[in-house]
Write a protein that binds this DNA or RNA. Structure first.
Length: 688
DNA sequence: TTTAGGG
DNA sequence: CCCTAAA
């Protein structure tokens, strides 16, 4: 049985998922910790780490020879995406994944294996020992899968929304820029900008923007910079007034839209249909699709409870029982599986040279020796389709899939298909979650010198490509050699009275690579599990908007540097042990310049005391930015602006922005003071 | 829940 | 970022 998952995410970074934010009420309810504990890395996080490490460029398109095959695949993908999207937001415009351009390349595994193979009956399960279980959303959303595609858009509301969306997109009133998987939306609020101001004064667009129609309070008041009659209040809020301002006078309203579904996604059974500020995702291109697809995998994998799922589990008890209660939680947890970033450095058109992926296929590993006790061993097979493009001394690898190796699964005959799916899922999750490392094989030999460069090892040479392979190995620190019983995977008997079916989920040509007993426990609460969906496709926290600052347009595209490779090297063991107890701090997500820009602009408009509005206005779709975060960021921004540039740390904020920060801060502080003064006056008047 | 401010 | 008093 082959479990196959294609990885084409092109992750360029990885972050340890933080714990779910503990709201006070959640802590009170005591549910927080439990949820917290479940917030574990899923199996495919690991796979994606591997991919993220190795997939240096995701921009290559499938080769032309794959075209017809991929067409079907894309159709499947699209329907799956529709399905998913439909569930999530009831609006979708799916574009076909155009192969012509690298930008629209999409390559994922067939999502409908399970259904295609018709393993819906018990018989077929019993007999189909080489049953192919597609790791797809069907695993967790069998009900969704049942629906036909035709039905998916039968819903009139959805249709109309799609129509609206399409028209919105075509209307051109908004501009969407995608940066990696981060979508950035720049709305051009012409209505605001073009609105003749009552004061009749010449305004910079900044001031015009400050005067937002959505904001009656501010609107009633005069534009901040123009209201002040006293000289001390001459706050240079207008871009024109800022010396050396690199900002264009025609500054559009900027709304940083970071898609981050961690909060509002509770799976396909709870579609979020109402949103305060609905923002369509107008460009549902490849990245969006990829992201959605990726999310499927994040969703379907239950979080491991703890690390004892490894071979060190001496008593060989079923290890999955304790996780059963995980599935009761319908609501997804806040996890941030990935930082996904687009690689801009190699976006030359010539890179779209057909889907020359390096396909990962099984490679037989020698039996016996611990070193070769690979959980999965794969070899890159490319042949003429394998492209290895040294470009600017970079090596491009494309891992089409990493297969999960041999598994043993025992499951009662009376179990449902869904139960089988989940069991397989758990088994896979357990193996991958028990601590893995990636091995690199070059011409069948392991490359152990971690410090050697690719060049030194010869990996970067074209002729070595076929010989390059990767494998997932058990982490030695996690799996004592003594517990690796050699070449025969042991089999764990389930303590169920029922007859047991045994599945050897075996990877071809691979024997004895898994030293892991999997006991399939019949799942009593199938329903909940079926809907247990993790939904968080974290967006890169650093969106880059090219439209808002024309003067730095070209820069903006590369403003966010690709993440260090180190960032990818998240070792699950690190946070496996510590994580369980206290509420972990949320992951640190430094504000990007773009975000700062958006924040500054919003604060200029709304003032410093209305963080909720600021959030709604500029960060509504960035779920990980709370209004408290914004307030804190403003605080630090003010501080940053006041200290000398030498003392500043982190990504440098343009001085121009800092100037605006100070200006806005000064202005709104004064406004506040005035307000207070008036209040006091009124009070004293009343008293007298 | 939101704001404000200290840590 | 976190925590929390206060509104």
């Amino acid at each position: 049985m082959v479990l196959q998952k294609r990885l084409d995410y092109g992750f360029y970074g990885y972050q340890v998922p933080p714990m779910p934010r503990a709201t006070r009420s959640a802590r009170r309810r005591g549910s927080f910790k439990k949820k917290h504990e479940e917030n574990q890395m899923c199996a495919f996080d690991l796979l994606a780490i591997v991919a993220g490490k190795l997939l240096l460029d995701k921009e290559s398109a499938p080769s032309s020879s794959d075209k017809s095959a991929d067409k079907d695949q894309r159709a499947v993908i699209n329907s799956a995406v529709k399905n998913e999207w439909q569930d999530e937001e009831k609006s979708l415009k799916v574009e076909d994944c155009d192969q012509g351009s690298a930008d629209k390349n999409i390559y994922v595994s067939d999502l409908s294996h399970v259904h295609r193979q018709g393993c819906s009956s018990k018989e077929s399960l019993v007999t189909q020992n080489d049953l192919n279980l597609g790791l797809a959303s069907e695993l967790t959303k069998p009900d969704c899968a049942e629906r036909s595609n035709a039905e998916k858009f039968g819903n009139g509301q959805s249709k109309s929304e799609i129509g609206t969306l399409a028209s919105k997109v075509e209307g051109g009133s908004s501009e969407y820029i995608e940066f990696g998987d981060c979508k950035l939306e720049a709305e051009t609020k012409r209505a605001v900008k073009d609105e003749p101001h009552k004061s009749g004064m010449v305004q910079s667009s900044t001031v015009a923007n400050i005067c937002n129609l959505e904001d009656p309070v501010v609107l009633d008041a005069k534009p901040p910079a123009l209201v002040s009659s006293d000289s001390s209040a001459k706050v240079p809020l207008c871009g024109n007034h800022i010396p050396n301002s690199s900002y264009p006078t025609n500054q559009d309203d900027v709304n940083v839209v970071i898609r981050d579904d961690d909060e509002n996604s509770s799976g396909c059974t709870h579609p979020i249909t109402t949103k305060k500020f609905f923002r369509p995702a107008p460009r549902i291109g490849d990245r969006r699709i990829r992201k959605i697809l990726a999310s499927k995998y994040w969703k379907l994998a239950p979080r491991l409870k703890d690390a004892t799922v490894s071979n060190s589990d001496r008593d060989l008890k079923p290890v999955f029982r304790k996780r059963q209660n995980c599935y009761r939680h319908q609501r997804s947890e806040r996890i941030y599986p990935f930082k996904k970033r687009k690689h801009f450095a190699y976006s030359s058109p010539s890179n779209s040279d057909g889907g020359m992926g390096c396909e990962f296929v099984s490679d037989s590993s020698q039996k016996g020796s611990n070193e070769d006790a690979s959980v999965s061993c794969s070899r890159m097979r490319g042949g003429q389709h394998t492209s290895f493009l040294p470009r600017d001394s970079h090596v491009k690898l494309r891992i089409k899939s990493i297969s999960v190796p041999e598994l043993l699964i025992e499951i009662p005959e009376s179990s449902t298909v869904g139960s089988l799916k989940r069991t397989v899922m758990e088994a896979v999750t357990a193996i991958l979650g028990s601590g893995l490392r990636v091995g690199v094989l070059l011409q069948g030999k392991k490359v152990r010198e971690d410090n050697k460069t690719l060049q030194q090892t010869g990996i970067s040479r074209n002729n070595q490509l076929d010989a390059l392979g990767f494998c997932l190995e058990p982490n030695p620190s996690q799996i004592p050699p003594s517990l690796c019983p050699g070449d025969s995977p042991f089999f764990l008997q389930c303590d169920t009275p029922q007859p047991i079916l045994r599945f050897d989920i075996k990877y071809p040509h691979t024997t004895g690579v898994v030293h892991q007993g999997i006991c399939a426990v019949p799942e009593p609460h199938v329903n909940n599990l079926g809907n247990y969906i993790e939904s968080d496709h974290d967006s890169a926290p650093s969106p880059t908007d090219t439209s808002m600052d024309k003067s730095t347009n070209s820069k903006a595209l590369v403003a966010v540097p690709a993440m260090n490779v180190e960032a990818l090297a998240v070792i699950p063991a690190h946070w496996k042990s510590k994580r369980s107890e206290m509420a972990q701090r949320r992951i640190r997500r430094p504000f990007s310049v773009t975000e700062v820009e958006a924040l500054v602009q919003a604060v200029e408009k709304l003032g410093t005391g209305r963080w909720r509005d600021v959030k709604l206005r500029a960060f509504d779709n960035a779920k990980h930015r709370t209004y408290v975060d914004l307030k804190d960021k403003w605080k630090t921004l003010v501080h940053t602006a006041r200290i000398s540039p030498q003392q500043r740390r982190g990504e440098p904020v343009p001085q121009e922005l800092l100037d605006r920060v100070l200006a806005a801060h000064a202005y709104w502080s004064q406004q506040q003071a005035k307000q207070q003064f008036k209040h006091q006056q009124a009070e004293t008047c009343l008293l007298l």
